[in-house]
Nucleic acid binder design. Structure first.
Length: 880
RNA sequence: GCCGAUGUGGCGAAAUGGCAGACGCAACGGACUUAAAAUCCGUUGGGCUUUAAACGGCCCGUGCCGGUUCGAGUCCGGCCAUCGGCACCA
């Protein structure tokens, strides 16, 4: 026997409809002011995280989120929304360049090929993207504006008084370069010799590069930084209003890492006290602590090895040990620092400080468990109530003083929680919270402390020593950087044959001597921007992708990124689902953004940061870019393992579509389980869903003698009967609510129930089929389009394609039953069922239930203590 | 170590505090077929039990232990396991 017969001719109808959609540009959204734009329509912006087009092509994980958003997009269009549903390419970055170096092909060529491959794969799935809005971060017409935004950032500063980014011209100080949001700093960076570039903290995992897994070492270099830390507070606070998963908000909060506490000054003990030769009079060491209430327990100070005061306070005889320790620390890579973290190290400086609470002399130590980049780079050691200080003090035999009494029975030694202050004259007996407040006030009065907030977040290391990225619109002259004028954009990278990293830390662009030479005196910046730059604002460009006057037109931005107007013709059940947090009526920005958790702190934080800068400068209408965020879960292989080439369990969408069709692929992706959940792939499951779609086909189509499909003679233009109407309206209700709630798996289950109910009936009512096809359309757009067209050819009387239909409403009255079955429980266990009229009163229900012979038998000899009636559902008789 | 998510049949999963397991997969039985595939119909959480057979009846069951409630997969407290994130951030 030849090839197995296809259950329905998806291989013919899918390309047919994709061609029709493309030809008619059915999914192209108009902007305000364009042609037939209808201002009465509310907007809905539904966005996917655009992919990095790798050489491997799509795997089944990509289209999971894409299918979900496509269903929502198609549904919203039918609901009368003007829907923005775009797609594009995040195509700059390390992997393309690594691949290019390996194969000798220029990254622009591999990128072009990969984009073409990705695009054709996506088109095969039948997504309703508006391809006229396609963007590509490597296109000069795109990165011109990436560079333009950089100029805006460079030419701004953060005004702490207004708590906003402002043009640098409002800065009144004498050194604007010291406050710019983009600045140059000599910082210890993550240098990856193998990749020949520095990496952001976020791109280093366990001391290895995220891309490639190569070792990363610490090394000081001059780099471009973006002052994201200025926005730390707003980035945390403004999470509150966003409709994001709690876990993602928490991830961002933890990453930003806000801590409230105090900065306390410790005076360095004078010459007379220490007997040292050098004078150290007047030096103060400022420490940051979240537990000022433990000040009385502070028995030593620690400075980070890089702390600037180290040189000034270390005693002569300690110098050799100190120098050795500092060098050893500097040489440690991140990996070593992490690995060696169990054993504390440090050296005594020979100097002492005065504890402002106890007035006692305490030793000053230098240790690398204190980080120069956090707080003040110095801490007060409280061995009795901090784990790290506990270990350190134990190792170096420093004194312990207990100052917090736990409220439970636990011992005070080593207790790090909140309790009652002891051995602390000023605050004895106070709770931790009150003790903090009081001791800060006491120190403040004497000018020795002030309340302070610290963030873990560091400024964003923004330069890379690579070829395949956006060049900076900056030149250097006489050792100073200077921004180029907007009119010079885009700055296009020079065509380089040898774009390999130099290995010295000098960027490949430096090899293009002619390009680097900007003028007699000035030369170009040769670093490039990191991959995140392009993805920081792509959602804005989609709003107005062809605009060559502005990064996004004002009107387009206001419309697509503004408030989505209230939905139209809401039914009660939908209002309920709105209240329960559905995808309607959000206060602005992208209305639904779907993507993976892996971007929880990188892309999503950077994009919010850029958005806020542009908002502050008056270029955007809302302070937050993504109003609602949903993370799709990872799809595992059939073996329940993460999909990977090495495990050989990768599923390609192409193969699935080849065997079962795009509609089956889409529906299975959604039927697997809840969108947000991690779940394993199953080819058997795909088959099951394909069978469902084939049943839909055969509901309306039958094979004639010649083996050709033709419209089934069972389909007739008659009214559905009562039970059919009931299931039809129940299906409208369920599918509508489930799409709003993104519960696509249960929506499909309901459609299966619908089809099962119409299988093997004598006549198939036309109207029920038409309604059903509209419901099915967002999930299986090709199949439903084809059947819709077949019905139209036979019966006429319907305008246009299925994609132009409006979403059906349901009638609650049809769903009302005359009679309901009521479960009868005795002491919480179901013992009987009775059928009763829907209108029966509570007393009538009670009477009917108690009259049931079965119940009488069960309750005989007992007294009925209570009867609980749940209307239309259940009665519980409590007996003793 | 800290933070978070998850835990329900052989499997993927359903279930506003109200009949646990919808829907699908797999398995088994039947119809159609020369036969198979496909399709259609039916059974399917575990155990016990009544009966000639059937209808039935009873008990147990949502990771474990406890609590709240007439009633708990769902709410509360405590554990266990798996996955994910952070990890000297003072």
């Amino acid at each position: 026997m030849s090839e197995r017969r296809k259950p329905y001719p998806f291989d013919q109808i899918e390309p047919k409809w994709q061609a029709i959609w493309d030809e008619r540009q059915l999914f192209h959204a108009l902007n305000p002011g364009e042609g037939n734009f209808d201002p009465a329509k509310p907007k809905f912006y539904v966005l996917d995280m655009f992919p990095y087009p790798s050489g491997a092509g799509l795997h089944v994980g990509h289209p999971e989120g894409y299918t979900a958003t496509d269903i929502v997009a198609r549904y919203k269009r039918m609901r009368g929304f003007n829907v923005l549903h775009p797609m594009g390419w995040d195509a700059f970055g390390l992997p393309a360049e690594q691949y290019a170096i390996k194969t000798g092909q220029h990254p622009s060529i591999t990128t072009r090929d990969n984009v073409a491959k990705f695009k054709s794969q996506l088109e095969r799935i039948g997504f309703s993207y508006d391809w006229q809005r396609e963007v590509n971060t490597t296109d000069p017409r795109y990165f011109k504006w990436t560079q333009w935004i950089f100029l805006k950032i460079y030419n701004s500063w953060f005004n702490p008084e207004t708590n906003k980014a402002e043009p640098i011209s409002t800065y009144r100080g004498d050194d604007p370069d010291s406050v710019r949001l983009a600045y140059i700093a000599e910082v210890p960076v993550n240098w990856c010799p193998e990749l020949g570039t520095v990496l952001a903290n976020e791109e280093v995992i366990d001391g290895k590069s995220e891309v490639g897994g190569f070792p990363v070492v610490r090394r000081p270099m001059r780099q471009w930084m973006l002052r994201i830390t200025a926005f730390a507070e707003r980035l945390i606070d403004e999470l509150d209003g966003l409709d994001w998963p709690q876990s993602i908000k928490l991830l961002q909060r933890n990453w930003i890492g806000r801590s409230e506490g105090a900065e306390i000054d410790f005076a360095v003990a004078g010459v007379a006290d220490s007997g040292a030769a050098v004078t150290d009079r007047g030096h103060k060491i400022r420490v940051f602590t979240t537990r000022p209430d433990t000040l009385y327990g502070g028995t030593y100070l620690v400075l980070a090895p890089e702390h600037s005061l180290v040189d000034l306070i270390v005693k002569k005889e300690q110098w050799p040990a100190m120098r050795e320790y500092r060098e050893k620390t500097a040489r440690k890579s991140d990996l070593e620092r992490t690995e060696l973290s169990k054993e504390k190290t440090g050296v005594f400086s020979g100097a002492f400080a005065i504890n402002p609470a106890t007035n006692q002399k305490i030793p000053i130590w230098i240790a690398d468990y204190v980080l120069i980049g956090y707080g003040t780079g110095a801490i007060g050691g409280v061995p009795a109530h901090d784990e790290r200080d506990f270990e350190f003090a134990k190792k170096f035999d420093l004194p312990f003083v207990e100052v917090v009494q736990p409220s439970g029975g636990e011992p005070a030694m080593g207790f790090t929680g909140e309790g009652i202050a002891i051995n602390s004259p000023i605050i004895n007996g106070l709770s931790t919270r009150e003790a903090k407040r009081k001791i800060i006030a006491w120190l403040e009065q004497r000018g020795q402390a002030k309340g302070a907030v610290n963030y873990k977040l560091r400024d964003w290391l923004f330069s890379r020593q690579r070829y395949w990225g956006e060049p900076f619109p900056v030149v250097w002259q006489d050792g100073h950087h200077r921004a180029l004028d907007e009119s010079e954009l885009p700055i296009v990278p020079p065509p380089l044959d040898d774009y390999k990293p130099t290995g010295t830390g000098e960027p490949p662009l430096a090899k293009a001597k002619d390009w680097v030479r900007y003028s007699e005196k000035a030369s170009r910046e040769t670093n490039t921007m990191p991959q995140w730059a392009g993805s920081c604002w792509y959602y804005l460009r989609y709003c107005d992708p062809q605009n060559d006057q502005r990064f996004v037109g004002e009107e387009a931005e206001r419309y697509w990124m503004g408030d989505s107007t209230a939905g139209i013709g809401l039914q009660n059940a939908e209002r309920k689902s709105v209240a329960a947090g559905s995808i309607r009526n959000q206060p602005g920005g992208v209305d639904l953004y779907v993507g993976g958790t892996e971007h929880a702190v990188l892309h999503l934080l950077y994009a919010r940061f850029w958005h806020k800068v542009l908002f502050d400068l008056g270029y955007l209408s809302k302070p937050e870019p993504f109003q609602r965020l949903v993370n799709q879960g990872i799809i595992l292989g059939e073996d329940n393992q993460k999909m990977s080439k090495s495990r050989g369990n990768v599923i390609s969408p192409d193969d699935v579509i080849e065997s079962y069709g795009a509609d089956a692929f889409r529906c299975y992706e959604m039927f697997m389980g809840p969108l947000e959940q991690m779940k394993p792939w199953s080819m058997r499951g795909v088959e099951g869903v394909a069978r469902f779609l084939a049943r839909v086909w055969r509901l309306m189509m039958s094979e004639n003698q010649a083996g050709e499909w033709e419209l089934s003679s069972k389909v007739k233009d008659i009214e559905p009967d009562k039970p059919q109407q009931k299931i039809m309206h129940a299906t409208i209700k369920k599918v509508t609510g489930d799409i709003e709630a993104l519960s696509f798996n249960t929506a499909i289950a309901q459609m299966m129930i619908f089809v099962n109910a119409f299988t093997n009936v004598e006549t198939i009512p036309l109207s029920a089929m038409r309604t059903f096809l509209v419901l099915l359309n967002p999930f299986a757009p090709h199949l439903s389009s084809e059947l819709w067209e077949k019905l139209n050819k036979q019966f006429g009387k319907s305008d246009g394609d299925i994609t132009e239909q409006s979403w059906p409403d349901y009638d609650e009255r049809v769903l009302v039953e005359d009679e309901v079955e009521i479960a009868v429980q005795v002491n919480g266990k179901v013992r009987d069922r009775v059928r009763l009229s829907i209108s029966a009163t509570e007393d009538e229900v009670k009477a009917a239930v108690l009259a049931s012979p079965k119940i009488q038998q069960l309750t005989a000899g007992h007294t009925v203590a209570k009867v609980v009636v749940v209307p239309k559902k259940l009665v519980n008789i409590v007996v003793n």
